[in-house]
Every structure is written in C-alpha cells, then in structure tokens.
Design a protein around this nucleic acid. Structure first.
Lengths: 226, 226, 226, 226
DNA sequence: CATGAATGAGGCTTCATTCAT
DNA sequence: GATGAATGAAGCCTCATTCAT
C-alpha cells in the first residue's frame, strides 16, 4: 500500500481511539477511565491504543487538541455564517455558538479548562517535573499550544469590531467583556453538568428559559453605555 | 477523662484530619490524594485516619459537609450584617459573600458542585451500587443531605423580599435570578482557578476589576425592569 | 500464534496457577494463603495471577471445581473398572476410591465440604451480600453448581442397583446408606488430617488396619438384613 | 475487696469473654473473628479483652480448654448416670453423649480437632517457631495439654470393661473401636455442619433417623463376634 | 501493526496489638 | 482495671505500561 493510504488508515484509527477516549472520559472522568476501557470501546487491544498514544496523558492531550480544534471550527463557522452582520450580532452569534458547543460536547469545555490548569497542575500527579516533561514531548501538547489562544483572539477581535462599528456600546476592555461572557457560559454549563446531563429543569426553572435569559443578559451588557 | 472532654478531643482530632484532607485535596485533587498523605499531614498514622473516617469517600463527604456548613455560616453572617438593609442590598451582600467564600476556599466551591454530581456519578468509580451504599451509610452524607438546600432557600428568599420591598425590579422567577447569579460566580471562580490561584490578572485584565464589574452587572440585572 | 494454541497456553497457565493455589492452600489454609505466595510459587507476578483469577475467592472456586471434577473422574474410573461386578462390589469400589481420593488430595475433601457451607457461610467474611455476589459471578461457581450433585447421584444409583440385584441386603433408603458411608469416610479423613498427614499410626492403631476395618464395617452394613 | 472475691470477679469476666469468643468464632470462624467483635459482644473495650487474654490465639486456646473440659464433664456425667450398667451400655451412653455434645456445641468439636493440628499447624500462620512459642507460653495451652487425653482414656477404658464383662463381643483393639466410633461421629457432625446448622433433613433423609441409624450401627459393631 | 499476557508500583483498607490516660 | 485512640505491618486488588509473539 502506498504511503498516503497508509497514513489515512493511521489517522482513521487514531480518530476512532480519540472518539472512544472522549466517550469514556465523558462517562467516568479521566481518573476513573482505564486504557482498557478505551481499547474495548474501539474494539482493539490495549497494545494498539499504546501504539498510537504512548501514555494516557497523551491521549488526553489528543482529546484536548480536538476540543480546541472543534471549538475553533464552531467559531469560524459562526463568523462565516454571520459574515454580513455587525459586530454585536457576530459576538452574540459566537456566544450562542459557544453554548451550543458546550451543550453538544460538555467534555470539551471541561478539557479546555483542565488544559489551563496543566502548567500549575496536580491533575496528573504530584511529580510535576516528570509529567510536564512527558507532556511537553507530546505532539498533541505542542499542537494545543499553537491554537489555544485562537478562540480568545477571535472573540475579542469581534468585540473590537463591534465597538468600532458602534453596535457595541459598552466601552470596557474587550478582554473584560470576553471574560464576562466566557465565565457566564462556563458557569451555566458547569451547573447543568453537575445537575445531570439530560434534565429539562433546575430548581423548577426550565433550562431553555435560563439559557435564553442568559443570552439576553449578555446582549444587554454589551449594549450598556455604562 | 470525663466524657465531654474526651468527645471534645475526638472532635478536635476529626477537625485536624478534615483540615489536612482539605489541604491535600486542594493541592492534588481527590483522585490523586492518598490517605497516607493526609495522615502524614496530621502527623498520625494511616490507621488513625481510618479510625475516624472509615473510607476515603467518607472523608471527602466530611469535607463536603464542612464546605456547606461554612457556606451557610458565611451567608448567615452576611444577612446578619445587612440586617437593616433592603432586599437588593442583602442579595448583593450575599453575592459578594459568596465570591469571598470561593476566593478563600476554592475547594469548597468544587466540592459542593461535586456533591451535586454524586447521585449520577462516576467520581467514585463505576460500581455505583456498592459505592452509593457505602456513601449513604456515611453520617456525613446524611448531614449533607440535611443542609444542602439551605443556601438556595436563603438566597431565593432574600430575592423574594427584595421584590416585595421594591428594591429588586426584575420580575423573573427568583430561582432564575438565583441561577444566573450562582452560575456567574461559578464561572468566575472556575476561570480563576483554572488560571492559577494567585495571579492578579487574566488576559491583561485585573481580576479585581473583573470582579467589580461582575458585581455591578449582577446588580444591574436585578434592577432591570425587563 | 493461532487461536487454539493460544487457548491451550492460557489453559496451561491457569492450570499451573491452580496447582500452586492448591499447594499453598493445602499448606497454610485459605485464610493464611497470600495471593503473592501463589504467584511466587508459579514464578509469575501477582498481576498475572489476577489476570487469570480476578479474586482470591474465585481462585478458591477454581480449586473447588477441580476437586469435584477430580472426584467425579475417580468415581467414573472406579465404576468403569468394576463394570462387570455386582452392585455391592461397585459400591465398595466407590468407597475405596473415595478413600484413595481423600488420601491423595486431602485438600479436595476439605474444599468440597467448604463449598457446601458457602451459601450460609462466613468463610469469606461477613459481608455476605457482596461476596456471594462476587462469587456467583465466577465462572467456576457456575461450573461447580453443575457438577456438585454428580457424586451423590452416582453412588446412590449404584446402591439402588445393588439392592435390585440382591447383592445389597440392607433395605434402608440409599440416601441414608450413602450418608452413612460418606460420613464415615469424612470422619476417617478428618481425624487423619488432624493427626498429621504422614503418620502411620494413631493411638497405636495402624492406620491401614483402621482403614481396612472401616471398609469391612461398611460392607457389613450393606449386607445387613436389618 | 478481699482477694477471693476479686479473683471471683476476674474469673467471671474471663468467662464472659470466652462466652463471647465462642459465639463469634462459631458464627464467623476464627480467621474472620475480630477481637473487637468479641469485645463488643461482651460489652467491654478491646483493651479489656487484651487484659485477660494477651493474644487472639490465647483466647482461642481458652475456648479449646473449655471445650475439652466440657466434653469431659459430659462424659463423666454419662458414666455416672450409667453407673449400674454394663460396659456396652456405658460405651453406647458415651457415644450418644458425644453426639449430644457436638449437637449442642458444634464449635467444640471443631476446636478439639483444630487443637490436634496445632503442633504441625498452619492455622495460626506460617511462622511456626514464633507462634508455637507464644502458644506454649499460654496458660491455657498447658491446661489443655493436661486434659487432652482424658476422653480417649475414659472411653477406651469403658470399652475394655465391656470386653471384660462380655457385653462387648468385638475383639478388636479398644483403640480401634474408639477411632471407629469417634470418626463416625465426627463425620456425622461435619456433614451436618456443612449442610447448615438448623436443617431437619439432608438428601431427603431425616437427620434424626440418620442419627438413630448411626447409633445402632455402632452398637451392632461392638456386638460383632467378627 | 496487533495482540494480550505479564509486570510491579502503588493505593485502600483491615486488624492484632500497644499504651497513655 | 478499663478505655479507646493510635500504630503499622500486611494483604487484596488496580492499572498504566511493556514486550514477546
């Protein structure tokens, strides 16, 4: 078989493994997930998983990379879709997109936060020196490094544009607005996850209503003259 | 030694162990924490820790209980302090208090969220039947059950009062307002934790400014006529 | 390697582990046996033992299964050997065979009795619910279930034949005669084991003489008209 | 308080502890019994149990001693009761008494057998040197040594008398007859215990019938001219 | 490339025993 | 004498990782 085809096969299998890892991590969490579970889910042996990902952490990093990649795609698509709209509308589009993204892959939101912790982290055990080393040698770690700031710059950039075109009145730093929006969404997602993935209400509040309200509040904030 | 004194000593030791557990859990997370670490931190043997808490989960539950208890104290103190104020002011006091609480004990916020997951959870491994059983036999589990809803009722109650006395204009369900505020704070805390506990800025935004802004936004929301 | 060969190897290893377990259990008893001892005896690591038998109990069950299987083989061989003989002779053959069996594998006799206790048992600790569950999931447990009654039916069946062909005069229930014989042999074995495995006399009685006498007494019983 | 009264108190408490130990050992077996269980059953603290019995083994030895003592009392009482009878009757009385004894305290039968194993034993772990030493220093161990052979001599003595007075025809060595009877009873008891303590039938045979049959068989044996 | 057997460090937990009060 | 907190050795079991086939 020729090289490109072989590479394609390799990528396919890697993808399947990451799929499985995602599923398992989502279901039981990183700490409780076993490499064997992942292997079984893919329908291969443990050895095979290790052939593609030489450590569990590395597999986790692969999931993280995919999460970021996926988020970026969501955001790009949103911007593309709102191509003709003004800054405010684009930003609100990005917010809704981010909510959708978290809804569809709640693990991703988690994983992206986890990644932030990584450098000071305890997640992967206390022997930081060793682990950070292992980590940093991971191809996925480097890939993640490269794209980690994309969402932030994408969004703050749009906020800046909104301010420029006058659709956003709020004169606070775009980064502050970004943090406000981001943290709101994260809080929303965390509470929902904590409450259980498939409920329709929380404290007798319909989650959809809450979501709508959250969006309107954020929009309102952007419109605030201060 | 007489009974009360002995009980007191026992409680003191329990307290010291929970202190240590808190410290360890905060530092490395539940999954990476070892009972032996906790023991060493207290300066006793593993066996002693087990004398007071017969499983690791139970110890975790004890931390959870303390977290909720502590939160309730914070909230009561806040209400007491704002005794003379109107509903809006009391609610904003509670919000600030909650932010302080999370700032001072970020583990507590985590633990309280974790507790929500517990019933559907995988945190403690997959064999739910078994573990939920062990859990439910824990004295702390029952204690937690008893006070878990206190914060919610305290806060929604104050919102209701604010609406009644006219200081809160927003006519949405108090529970919706509560969720909005709660999730905002959680998002704020999560991002801060992810970023690292002792930084002063995030994305070049001073965290204090962000905090102030968050509070003003929430207050603004409560004042919104809709 | 092809599947059958791999399976064969797996079975071989399983067999070696059960061999070792038998040896250890015989030497120090179930409670005092350590999984590590078993591993060392086989010349593998603890992990390997657990790869084949996921709990100590399960390993014990495997020994039990082998014990029953072995007993059945002994009995079948005896019947085969005495093919041409009458009922009485066959029954006496079975009795002698059972004595030989106990002589050669005294652990087996123990293990078979233990198994009877299992359902109401405390052998494996007090938390019956949990352990019985673990136990019942064991493949060996089910296998044991399937063959546990074979010895009884084999022997009572032969007694029935002896009665039918007139060689056994005793008209009591075959089951009663079976119990009488079985308990005699068990008593004989228990005393011998208690006294020590390799002695030639007990209370100045030569054990061989005692054995011969036991057999003749049992035969006499079967010939009793009542 | 004066010495005798103090001694009496001490003996009373020792007795209560042995009672409890008996109960626990019977219920869960020596290996699974915990000193704490024993203490709780008595209603005292672990420390107190250790005040009276400095090791678990020693406590076990105390039970063993009591078992032998009790057996001897049963046997003496039986002989006393049959004072006027001939040798055969006395022997059969002893047999029935032994059956009663086992029925009422099945642990005792076990414990007496265990004791026999002790010298070559593995029951108390593999480090024989150490344990045998600990054991041999136990007061109860020495007491047991002193009376262990009483049952045997009592019974063989009666058999001898029966032979002398002509009521026992069987001319085999009294020790052989003793072993035959003893082992029969032990087999009977072991099977019953294995089957469960409170059943009325085994393999559809009423246990009382089996018992009666066992006794008649033994008597028959003693009457056999050979 | 894939398999799955093998490894072994490490964690949780138990419990006989000790000892300060 | 009694208590119960404290100890720590020991055992069961898990699971990331390696490696011969």
């Amino acid at each position: 078989m020729n090289r490109p085809a072989a590479n394609h096969r390799r990528n396919q299998k890697e993808k399947k493994i990451i799929d499985a890892a995602e599923h398992i991590f989502t279901a039981v969490g990183y700490a409780n997930a076993k490499m064997e579970d992942v292997a079984r889910e893919v329908g291969v042996s443990k050895g095979t998983v290790y052939f593609y990902f030489d450590t569990k952490e590395n597999l986790y990093m692969a999931v993280t990379y995919r999460a970021l990649q996926s988020l970026n795609e969501y955001l790009y698509r949103s911007l593309e879709h709102d191509r003709e709209k003004n800054g405010l509308e684009k930003v609100m589009g990005l917010v809704k997109t981010y909510l959708d993204f978290c809804d569809e892959h709640f693990l991703y939101a988690e994983v992206i936060l986890d990644y932030m912790k990584l450098n000071r982290s305890s997640k992967f055990g206390r022997d930081q020196a060793k682990l950070t080393t292992a980590m940093k040698e991971s191809m996925y770690y480097r890939r993640v490094q490269d794209i980690q700031n994309l969402p932030i710059s994408l969004i703050t950039e749009e906020i800046r544009r909104g301010v420029a075109d006058g659709s956003i009145k709020n004169k606070n730093k775009p980064e502050l607005l970004y943090l406000t929006a981001w943290s709101s969404v994260i809080g929303f997602v965390k509470l929902n996850v904590a409450a259980g993935t498939n409920r329709k209400t929380l404290l007798n509040v319909e989650i959809d209503k809450w979501r709508t309200y959250l969006i309107s509040t954020l929009q309102h904030t952007l419109l605030l003259e201060d």
